[in-house]
């Protein structure tokens, strides 16, 4: 009855086989299950205050758990493209996270970006983004970043340069804020948030960003601005071509054969631009990582103002 090497081998093989079978079953189960089963779409407790009491002495830890859940929720819905992403729990999750840990800076700032992002990349709720950041301001009044971020939302998603300018000015009065906020506010007021001031804003942020994600965001915004310029240029070319040539389907191929473009034009992320063959409108492809482009205030639309 001494344990033999043979029985050890038998055990090892059996255990490995069962592990394998469990993986196969898990994959089968994941396939068989509709996406809604994967993560609970129910949030039983919506009151951060209640959870705070339940969390006893581990509020920040529970906050971390909710923050991870918020990211999962956002990431999961973003993945399930095709418009099924509803992001309906994003705000409650972020709200709970920040109630449990009111100084969770990243949850306010990142959360606001998630919330403000237009569909399908996000729920398109700049109002909730502003509400979340205002909550952060109440928790930490001397954090100019929250004020600046509110300004962004007003400028970028809500298209209200005047309101954005007010928030930038307010941020500039907080000790420790960067010195470019004041000129930014002024430019915003004068020029109504045109691309030049946008570019200036994001270049400043990129140069002074102390965090990776903020730098990435600035890069993305700068690329989007570049794409908007390119689209305007391409639109001019296409419109000109359309006026001179007989009415045909407008495709990049035709334009290339006619020698108007040197190839299929790519956006700064390397995805071809889309061209509506009937109306001749140049657009960003929804497949591009830079999609969707922010809408611009009417005043700023003219390319060379």
């Amino acid at each position: 009855m001494q344990p033999s090497t043979r029985s050890t081998a038998v055990f090892a093989v059996a255990i490995a086989a069962l592990m394998g079978a469990s993986v196969v079953l898990q994959i089968a189960r994941d396939r068989a299950t509709p996406a809604s089963h994967e993560t609970a779409r129910y949030l039983y407790l919506r009151s951060g205050t209640v959870i705070e009491h339940l969390a006893v002495a581990y509020q920040t830890l529970v906050a971390d758990a909710y923050w991870i859940r918020a990211i999962q929720h956002y990431g999961g819905d973003r993945l399930s493209s095709g418009g099924s992403g509803r992001y309906e729990l994003l705000y409650p999750l972020l709200d709970i996270t920040t109630t449990l840990d009111p100084r969770f800076t990243i949850a306010y700032r990142f959360g606001a970006i998630f919330l403000a992002e237009a569909p399908p990349g996000g729920p398109g709720r700049p109002d909730q983004a502003v509400a979340l950041l205002r909550k952060g301001m109440r928790a930490e009044p001397d954090k100019w970043q929250y004020v600046l971020d509110i300004g962004f939302v007003y400028y970028w998603q809500l298209r209200e340069p005047a309101a954005a300018a007010r928030w930038f000015r307010r941020a500039s009065t907080i000790p420790g804020s960067p010195n470019w906020l004041e000129p930014l506010a002024a430019a915003m007021l004068v020029q109504g948030g045109d691309r030049r001031s946008s570019r200036f804003l994001w270049q400043q942020i990129r140069a002074t960003a102390d965090q990776e994600w903020l730098r990435n965001l600035a890069d993305r915004r700068l690329l989007q601005l570049q794409a908007m310029d390119q689209i305007d240029q391409l639109q001019q070319i296409v419109t000109e071509f359309d006026r001179r040539s007989p009415p045909i389907r407008l495709t990049w191929e035709h334009l290339y054969r006619a020698g108007v473009v040197r190839g299929v034009p790519l956006d700064p992320a390397g995805t071809p631009y889309a061209l509506d063959p009937i109306r001749g409108t140049v657009m960003m492809s929804p497949a591009s990582p830079l999609f969707p482009l922010p809408a611009e205030p009417a005043a700023a639309k003219a390319p060379n103002s």
């Binding site: 255990i15 069962l18 592990m19 079953l25 189960r29 089963h37």
Partner: peptide
């Protein structure tokens, strides 16, 4: 189907753990 797969998964995983425990 979900019930069956979940139960099957549970049984296989249990068998693995019990076997390892015996070992």
């Amino acid at each position: 189907a979900l019930m069956g797969l979940a139960t099957g998964y549970g049984l296989v995983y249990i068998a693995m753990l019990v076997l390892a425990a015996m070992f």
